[in-house]
Simulated assay, not measured.
Amino acid sequence: MSLVLHAETDRARWLEAWRALPTREPFAHPDFVAMFAARGVRPLAAVDSGAIFPFLLRDLEAEHWTEPGENRRDVAVPYGYGGAFVTGPGVDPDLFWKRFDSWAHDHRVVCADARIFLQRDEVLPMSGWSEQPACDSAVVDLARYRALRDQSFSSSVRRNIRQAGRAGLTVAVEHDEAAWQAFREIYRATMDRRRATGSYYFTDAFFVRLHGLLGNLARLFVVRDASGEPLSGEVVLLGTTRAYSYLAGSTGPGRRSHANELCKGAVCDWLVRGPWQEFVLGGGNRPDDALLEYKLRFAPGGRRSYSTGSKVYDEAAYAELVRLRHAFHERERLEAHVPRRFPAYR
């Protein structure tokens, strides 16, 4: 690669590349990628030939099941959407990925995986990668919302929003420390209730950095009842043309009083006062599950296909790591490891 930049030590050069991105996607910003820095995890970006590919370089030695001295690594896209974002004309995707492949081999990368950005014409084709269809995403067309307001939602959502309003619930953008801590507690309780996998339980350092993005790349919307008690919260990431529902949660009373629906409606009201054209709600945990069906009530006709990408650079090493993970579980008499997604050893 021409440059592989670190989100912290090379922030100025990374920002220069990000500013060339017409839609200024938050997922390509160094401060977003830096949220995922941890022991054995480096927030990096490959910059070359009019494109920028943000990624995490993960040392496999940091995994609890590997042996001391393990010196192999893998590559992943941070939680969200990714790929090689196009920053200029005349990009050769084959050459870009060939150069990245060479860098990966030099750095003992076994494999890579990515959640591919929804707007495929704004990222390079994933030359040499395998692609797999994943859960579709729901996307609110904000031009339609500007014209129809909540009439663009399903009738059940409109009814629930009216009920929440009659109950005295209100929504506001809040960035102070007290609101942020309340949101963190609500988010964690929501993940506990849903029995979420470990990947949804982010570190304290992650939340500190995410709080630092509020007012710039992100906003926190908080729903409160008539007494001021927080019932629901949602973190929304902002590009120049798209916004993304990133983290959200609600209390038991919040769910019963339809705080989530009120919050989504308020976010749409806020976004249509600005330049944003789409509000990406994300998808479900499985194809056509109840979560996706719920999100599509805010975006009838707004279903967008979505894929993940993967690449194995060293087949023998990949197979060995899968065996090592299974052997560790057998040796420690743990429940058998069942991979949820690529790579199979994670």
Rank of each mutant, 00 (worst) to 15 (best):
W270S: 02
E229G: 12
L231G: 08
R256P: 00
E229R: 15
G284P: 05
P253K: 03
T241M: 06
S305L: 15
V272P: 00
A259P: 01
Y244F: 14
G301E: 05
W276C: 00
G239S: 08
T241F: 01
G239L: 11
G274Q: 12
W276M: 02
S250T: 14
E229N: 15
S305A: 15
L238N: 11
R286M: 13
Q277W: 00
F298Q: 08
P300E: 09
E261L: 06
Y246H: 15
P300Y: 09
S307E: 10
V280P: 04
S307G: 01
V235T: 12
L262R: 04
H258W: 04
G228Y: 05
C263M: 13
L238Y: 07
P230S: 11
R304H: 09
E278P: 02
D269F: 08
P253G: 04
L238C: 09
A248C: 03
S232F: 07
F279W: 08
P300C: 03
Y306Q: 08
V236H: 04
D269S: 13
T251S: 06
V280L: 14
K264T: 06
P287D: 08
E234M: 14
V272K: 02
E293N: 13
R256L: 04
F279V: 03
V235C: 10
T240G: 13
S307T: 14
R273Q: 10
G282H: 06
G265W: 08
Y294K: 07
L281R: 12
S232D: 13
R256F: 00
G283A: 10
R242G: 11
W270T: 05
W270D: 05
Y244G: 09
S232E: 11
T251M: 03
T241H: 12
E234Y: 05
R303V: 11
L262P: 01
T241P: 00
N260C: 03
G284F: 03
Y294C: 09
G233Q: 02
W270A: 04
G228T: 10
L291A: 05
Y246C: 08
G284Y: 07
F298M: 07
A243D: 01
A248N: 10
Y246L: 13
R286V: 15
Y244R: 13
F279T: 07
P300F: 08
P287W: 02
A243T: 10
L231V: 14
A259L: 02
Y306F: 14
T240C: 11
L262I: 11
N285D: 13
E278F: 06
V236D: 01
G301M: 07
C263H: 03
V236N: 05
L238W: 07
E278S: 12
P300V: 07
T308A: 09
R242A: 15
W270P: 00
R256A: 08
G301I: 09
L296T: 06
E261K: 08
T240W: 03
Q277C: 01
W276H: 02
A243Y: 00
G302L: 10
G249D: 07
L292F: 07
E234G: 11
T251L: 04
T308V: 15
Y306G: 03
D289C: 06
G249N: 03
T240R: 15
